[in-house]
Design a protein around this nucleic acid. Structure first.
Length: 191
DNA sequence: CGGCCGATCCACT
DNA sequence: GTGGATCGGCCGA
């Protein structure tokens, strides 16, 4: 079952981050279907979150996507090399987002390996936000793509995630965020 | 318009 | 565990 707008439009970005664990992220790009089970996420809680691109209600051409109504992709380039895929949540003009940091390959394994230019499956094949995008073929063109369509979608497949198996930690690479760098907004499904 | 820097990854060691 | 790759956005001039 494809997740619908009501999932993304909720206020609580931490709850959404947590609930995205175990959901399946599917892309159909370049004529190939690939997918993975989401295993790691990070919440970015809008204009009061110093780690967020939207901190202080900053609006630019890049960050504008985060101000869209929940249920679309926010894709941007980091370090000039890596694409990072985020899920936009909350209502229009409330710039909440969830970064997808890792997935477990599910479908299209061969295609994922060729995109990743790796000979075989390893446990860290899609672990890391840049790797997730590379594996699933996501790039800047997919910014603002709806998450309930053919190109990109997220499905509930009744994969059971035990609450006890979810670990929360501070987010990665946000040292610049001062006191907000310590917030436990990263969620890892440690099966 | 120039210069700096980042929500990273990989190849090496 | 370390350093190089590599580029769009932002800020200050």
């Amino acid at each position: 079952m494809i997740l619908q707008d009501d999932f993304y439009l909720r206020e609580d970005v931490l709850a959404i981050s947590r609930e995205l664990l175990g959901k399946v992220l599917i892309t159909e790009i370049g004529g190939k279907r690939t997918s993975g089970i989401i295993t790691e996420t990070e919440a970015y809680a809008g204009v009061t979150d110093k780690a967020s691109h939207a901190y202080g209600n900053r609006r630019t051409k890049r960050t504008e996507t985060m101000y869209a109504e929940g249920g679309v992709a926010y894709v941007y380039l980091c370090y000039g090399i890596h694409h990072l895929f985020n899920v936009v949540t909350n209502k229009k003009d409330t710039p909440h987002a969830v970064l997808i940091r890792a997935v477990k390959p599910l479908e299209g394994e061969k295609k994922i390996l060729s995109r990743r230019k790796r000979p075989g499956m390893t446990s860290d094949l899609c672990k890391g936000p840049g790797k997730v995008c590379q594996a699933l073929g996501i790039n800047l063109k997919h910014d603002q793509t709806p998450l309930n369509g053919k190109t990109i979608r997220i499905e509930e497949r009744n994969i059971r995630v035990n609450e006890n198996a979810i670990i929360s930690t501070p987010r990665i690479g946000v040292d610049y965020a001062e006191e907000d760098a310590q917030l436990p907004y990263r969620f890892v499904w440690d099966k």
